[in-house]
Design a protein around this nucleic acid. Structure first.
Lengths: 130, 130
DNA sequence: CTAACTGTATTATCACCATAGTACACTAAC
DNA sequence: GTTAGTGTACTATGGTGATAATACAGTTAG
């Protein structure tokens, strides 16, 4: 379990996003048990209350369900699960475009820079035409 | 003077970014007078202290200079000014890539989504091949 | 000189985020 | 039944961001 707590975004939001990613990638599947709050807090070295807030947020977003005094589980609503990845990507794109809007950046420049940045990780780069 | 206070980012940071954009685009030029704190606060309908914090931040970043009891001015350091745009774009790209990393997004999908989002504004889109 | 404007500083209040510590009710395993 | 582990709830503290309300020193336009 690795989370990089980089940005200024609230930790509990970053925890939510982390689990969204795992669901989007199928690493966490429908109906699967979530780790316990305390366990996760210890592992991530954050406060149990922060984890609780993240889980509460995920419940409100219907990503997980919880029966009292039983470990939370990933939703079995495939409809919800299928949307996650799209939402993650779309929101990232929206934030990105918003931040560079009005800066007169060409798609060429953008693609180039993104590829470079991506390259430092690993990219699934087929095509882009050229 | 229009700023959209969208995100969760601190307002004073958004004000800084707003002026960075104006400098990057040459709408604010080297040595030019900045609006006064009070004037700007009234116009943006935010607190003068928030504006002050933004200006202080800009001073620390050497974007503006201030002689006591005189309006602040855009730096005359062309070296600094030329870097602004690159820094804005690069940081946006970094945040973006970070947020979609590990989501297995192809460049095709990214470019497509970015173009769509961009389209809602105006894009300087020559090429990307296809 | 006076008045209106600069930047700057201080105090106070409120909300949000994160932490720490504690407590309670229930379930599961022994 | 006891124990350890669940989720859940509460109070309190500290930091940051934003607001409000003043206040002071210096500059500038009348």
């Amino acid at each position: 379990m690795i989370i990089q707590f980089n940005t200024r975004a609230p930790v509990y939001i970053q925890v939510v996003d982390y689990f969204k990613k795992k669901m989007a990638l199928g690493e966490l599947q429908a109906g699967e048990e979530m780790p316990s709050r305390r366990e996760l807090a210890t592992e991530l070295k954050i406060n149990p209350n922060t984890v609780q807030k993240a889980f509460k947020e995920m419940e409100e977003q219907q990503l997980i369900t919880t029966e009292r005094n039983r470990p939370s589980r990933v939703t079995t609503d495939e409809h919800v699960l299928k949307r996650i990845r799209t939402e993650l990507v779309d929101e990232a794109v929206a934030v990105f475009v918003e931040s560079i809007q009005e800066l007169d950046v060409t798609m060429d420049e953008l693609v180039d820079k993104i590829k470079r940045q991506y390259g430092e990780g690993n990219i699934n780069d087929r095509s882009t035409g050229s």
